[in-house]
Simulated scan of single mutants.
Amino acid sequence: MVIELLKFKISAEMQKTYVQKDAEIWTTALAQYPGFLGKEVWLNPHDSTEIIFVIRWATKEHWQAIPFAELEAVEQNFAAALGDTYKLVESAEYQVQTEFSSFVKL
């Protein structure tokens, strides 16, 4: 499994709307693709302007197979719904380690 982590900044007043529109637009679009396993929304209790999305993919190949033009179209739809109210501040990729015996001796 591969994790796509996205961190956004948005005004505290827009947070609820942002999360709702993300579910309607982005999550709905991503759920149509093979390999999409789910998405979590993390809200920082100490910074109401920070939202983190943790998106789970079966493999990196599934994630990377989404055509760029389709991602652009979804982003344009999302931006039209929210305007210039958010900023991507971090994007990262993680792999889920399921076997720890080679790393940790118990």
Rank of each mutant, 00 (worst) to 15 (best):
V2I: 11
V2D: 03
I3E: 01
E4M: 02
E4F: 00
E4D: 05
L6C: 00
L6V: 02
K7W: 03
K7H: 06
K9Q: 10
K9V: 07
I10E: 01
I10F: 00
A12N: 02
E13L: 03
E13I: 01
E13R: 03
M14V: 05
Q15P: 02
K16E: 11
T17K: 10
Y18V: 01
K21Y: 03
K21M: 04
D22I: 11
W26G: 01
W26N: 07
W26P: 00
T27V: 13
T27K: 11
A29F: 12
A29C: 02
A29D: 04
A29K: 04
L30R: 08
Y33R: 08
P34E: 08
G35I: 00
G35A: 01
F36D: 02
F36Y: 11
L37M: 13
K39T: 11
K39G: 06
K39H: 12
W42D: 10
W42Y: 15
L43F: 06
L43G: 04
L43E: 10
N44S: 14
N44D: 15
N44Y: 09
P45V: 01
H46M: 15
D47H: 06
S48W: 11
T49Q: 05
T49I: 01
T49A: 04
E50S: 13
E50Q: 13
I51Y: 04
I51T: 09
I52Q: 15
F53T: 15
F53G: 10
V54D: 10
I55D: 04
I55C: 09
W57R: 03
W57P: 00
A58I: 05
A58D: 12
T59N: 06
K60W: 10
K60E: 12
E61R: 09
E61F: 06
H62M: 05
H62G: 03
H62Y: 09
Q64K: 13
Q64R: 14
A65S: 15
A65V: 03
I66M: 02
I66T: 00
I66P: 00
A69F: 08
A69I: 09
A69M: 10
E70G: 01
L71M: 12
A73I: 02
V74Y: 08
E75W: 09
Q76K: 13
N77D: 14
N77K: 15
N77M: 14
F78P: 00
F78C: 01
A79W: 06
A79S: 13
A81P: 00
L82A: 04
L82F: 04
L82N: 06
G83Q: 03
G83T: 02
D84G: 04
D84R: 10
Y86M: 07
K87W: 08
K87P: 05
K87I: 10
L88C: 06
E90F: 15
E90T: 12
S91G: 15
S91H: 14
E93L: 15
Y94I: 05
Q95V: 12
Q95C: 11
Q95N: 15
V96K: 08
Q97L: 14
T98P: 02
E99F: 09
F100I: 09
S101Q: 12
F103R: 09
F103E: 08
V104N: 06
L106P: 13
